[in-house]
Design a protein around this nucleic acid. Structure first.
Lengths: 141, 141
DNA sequence: TATTGTTATACTCTATAACTATA
DNA sequence: TATAGTTATAGAGTATAACAATA
C-alpha cells in the first residue's frame, strides 16, 4: 500500500506551496484558539497594529481580500472589543478602523503566538537556509 | 493610503507560505476550468496516474486528506468517466480506484496545465534559485 | 459617475459523527 | 474489535451582485 507523494507532485513548487501553506494555516489556526481569534481576524489586527488606523478598503487592499469580507471581520473584532469604527472626518464614506487598548494587547499576544508557530514550522531549517527560503519566497510574492 | 504588507507579516515564512499557497491554488484552479476539473480532483487523478489503482484509503493517506472526502471526489471523477470503482478481490471492503482511458488522458492534460502554472508561478526565479527553493520546501514538508 | 461600506446569497473545502459491510 | 467506505451535517473561507451614502 503506497503512502508516499508521487514525484510529479513532490517536485512542483506550486504544489509544495499549497501543501505547506495549508499546514501553516492549520497550525496557526490552532495556536490562535486560546485567544478566540482565527487567521483572517489576526491579519486585520496585525495590519492595524503595524499601520495605525486604516479604512476598511485600505485593509482589503493590503491583505488582498475582498472589501466585502472586511465588513464581517471588523464586525467580529468590534464585538471582541478589539477595534472601533470611527467615521473619517475627511471622507464620510469611510470608517477608520482603530484598535482599542484591548485590541493592541490582543495584537501583541497574537504576534507572539505567530512567532512560536513560525519557529515550529521552520525548525527543519538552519539559520542560513531559513534566510534563503524567506528571501526567495519574498521574491515570489 | 498604505497599500504595502507590514514587515512583521512579510518576514514570516509561515505567512508567505499561506499567501503564496493560496495564489498557487487560485491560479491552478482557474487553469483547470477548461478541463472541468478542480484542484482536489486533479490531486486524485495525479496520484492514480502515478501509482496505478489504489484503494480510497490509500489515496486519502497519500494526499493527507480525510477518507470521507475521497468518496465525493471519486464520485465526481466517476461521473466524468475518469475512473471506475473496482472491488478489491483480496479485501471486499476495498474499492480499487482505477483510471479509465479517458481518465489517463485527462490526467495527462491536467499535468500539462500544472506545468504551465508552475512556470508562471516561478517566473521570478532563475534556474538555480528555483532548485534551491524547491529543495528547501521539500525539506520543510 | 466612481468609491466606500453594507447586505444577501451561494459555493467549495473541510471536519465530524454515525452507520454498513467486511476483516 | 478494527478497518474501508458511505452518508449527513455543519462551519469556515470565499466570490459575487445589488444597494445606499457620499465623493
Amino acid at each position: 500500500m503506497a503512502t508516499t507523494l508521487p514525484d510529479v507532485m513532490h517536485d512542483h513548487v506550486g504544489y509544495l506551496l499549497v501543501r505547506l501553506g495549508k499546514r501553516a494555516q492549520r497550525h496557526f489556526e490552532e495556536a490562535l484558539v486560546p485567544l478566540s481569534l482565527r487567521p483572517p481576524l489576526f491579519d486585520v489586527l496585525a495590519v492595524l497594529a503595524a499601520e495605525g488606523a486604516l479604512s476598511q478598503k485600505s485593509v482589503a487592499d493590503i491583505l488582498q481580500i475582498d472589501s466585502a469580507r472586511v465588513v464581517g471581520l471588523a464586525d467580529e473584532l468590534s464585538e471582541l472589543g478589539a477595534l472601533d469604527r470611527i467615521p473619517d472626518p475627511n471622507d464620510r464614506r469611510r470608517n477608520l478602523l482603530t484598535l482599542t487598548a484591548a485590541g493592541v494587547e490582543m495584537a501583541a499576544q497574537a504576534s507572539s503566538v505567530a512567532l512560536d508557530v513560525e519557529r515550529d514550522l521552520t525548525a527543519a531549517l538552519g539559520a542560513g537556509d531559513l534566510r534563503t527560503v524567506r528571501t526567495l519566497l519574498q521574491r515570489l510574492l
